[in-house]
C-alpha cells in the first residue's frame, strides 16, 4: 500500500514486528526490575522514560539534536563536495584513475576515528573538527560508489549520445554518465550517511562542543546517569533510522523511479 510515495503498513503486516518490540520491552523491564535490580547497571524502560521526560523538560534534547545535525551536515556536505568530483574523475578518466587509485586505497582503510588527533590539531575544538571525523567516514563510500557507477556506464549510451550531438566531455558526464551512474551514487550516499552517523558519538567525545547527542551521552555517563545514556542511545538509533528511511522511501522513489521496472 502506498500513499504519496510513502509505504504505509497495515496493522496486519506490522504486528509481528511490533510484537517483538513489545516482548523485548517486557523482558527488559522484568530483567531490570527483578534480576539486576540496579538502575545503574541496567535502567529499565520506565526509568528511561522518566529520564526522557526530564531531559525533554530541560529543553536540552533539541539543542543536542541541532548541534549534532550541524556536525553531521558539515561532514556529509564536505564528503559530497569532495567524494563525488573525485569519483567522477576516476571513473571517467583512466589517467585520473591510475593517478589517484593507490593513494585512495592507502587512505581508505584508516578507521575514521584514527583521524581524531589530527582533527583536533588542525581544527581545534570546533564543530568543523567533529565534521572532519564524520567526513573521513562518509567520503569513501561516496567516492567509491560514484567511481564504480561511472565505470559501469555502458559504452552504448555514450555512443548513442555522440550520434545525437552529445560530444563534449562535460555534456557526456552531465547528460549521460551521471544519470546512468546515479543509482550507484545514491546508494553510496546512503551508506555514507550510515557510516557518518556511527562516527558522530566518537567525534563529539573529545569536547568539540558543549552540546550534541554524542557529547551529552558521555556527559551523563560521567554523571553515572545511565537512564539518560539509554535515552541518547535510543535517540541516536531513531535518527539514524529516520535518515535511512528518507533514502528508502523518498529519494529512491522520486529520483530513481525509472528503475522500478528494471532488473537490478
Amino acid at each position: 500500500m502506498s500513499i504519496i510515495g510513502i509505504r504505509v503498513h497495515t496493522i496486519r503486516e506490522q504486528w509481528p514486528g511490533a510484537l517483538a518490540i513489545v516482548v523485548a520491552l517486557i523482558f527488559w523491564e522484568c530483567y531490570a526490575a527483578f534480576i539486576t535490580r540496579n538502575s545503574f547497571l541496567l535502567p529499565g524502560p520506565a526509568d528511561v522514560l522518566l529520564a526522557f521526560i526530564s531531559l525533554a523538560e530541560k529543553g536540552i534534547l533539541l539543542t543536542d539534536f541541532e548541534v549534532s545535525m550541524t556536525h553531521f551536515a558539515i561532514g556529509l556536505i564536505l564528503a559530497l563536495i569532495i567524494g563525488i568530483p573525485i569519483g567522477i574523475a576516476m571513473g571517467w578518466n583512466r589517467r585520473a584513475d591510475e593517478f589517484l587509485n593507490p593513494l585512495i586505497e592507502i587512505l581508505r582503510p584508516i578507521p575514521p576515528l584514527a583521524w581524531i588527533p589530527f582533527a583536533i590539531i588542525w581544527f581545534g575544538f570546533t564543530p568543523v573538527s567533529a565534521g572532519f571525523v564524520i567526513f573521513m567516514g562518509a567520503v569513501f563510500p561516496i567516492l567509491i560508489n560514484t567511481y564504480a557507477g561511472f565505470q559501469g556506464v555502458s559504452r552504448i549510451f555514450v555512443e548513442a549520445g555522440r550520434m545525437l550531438g552529445c560530444t563534449r566531455t562535460l555534456d557526456q558526464i552531465r547528460y549521460i554518465a551521471f544519470p546512468a551512474a546515479l543509482p550507484s551514487v545514491v546508494s553510496g550516499i546512503r551508506i555514507a550517511t550510515g557510516v557518518g552517523w556511527m562516527c558522530l558519538v566518537a567525534a563529539e567525545l573529545f569536547g568539540v562542543s558543549n552540546n550534541g547527542l554524542g557529547k551529552d551521552l558521555w556527559f551523563y555517563y560521567d554523571l553515572h546517569q545511565m537512564d539518560s545514556v539509554v535515552v541518547y542511545m535510543l535517540i541516536l538509533g531513531l535518527i539514524g533510522l529516520a535518515i535511512d528511511m528518507v533514502f528508502r522511501y523518498y529519494i529512491d522513489r522520486h529520483f530513481l523511479k525509472w528503475r522500478t521496472g528494471e532488473v537490478a
Binding site: I156, F157, E159, A160, M163, P179, A180, W258
Partner: peptide, 16 residues
Amino acid sequence: PKVGMVFQEYSLFPWR
C-alpha cells in the same frame, strides 16, 4: 547530426 543511428542493443536512455 546529418547521420542517425539505430543500434543493435537497446540504447535508449533508461532514465529518460
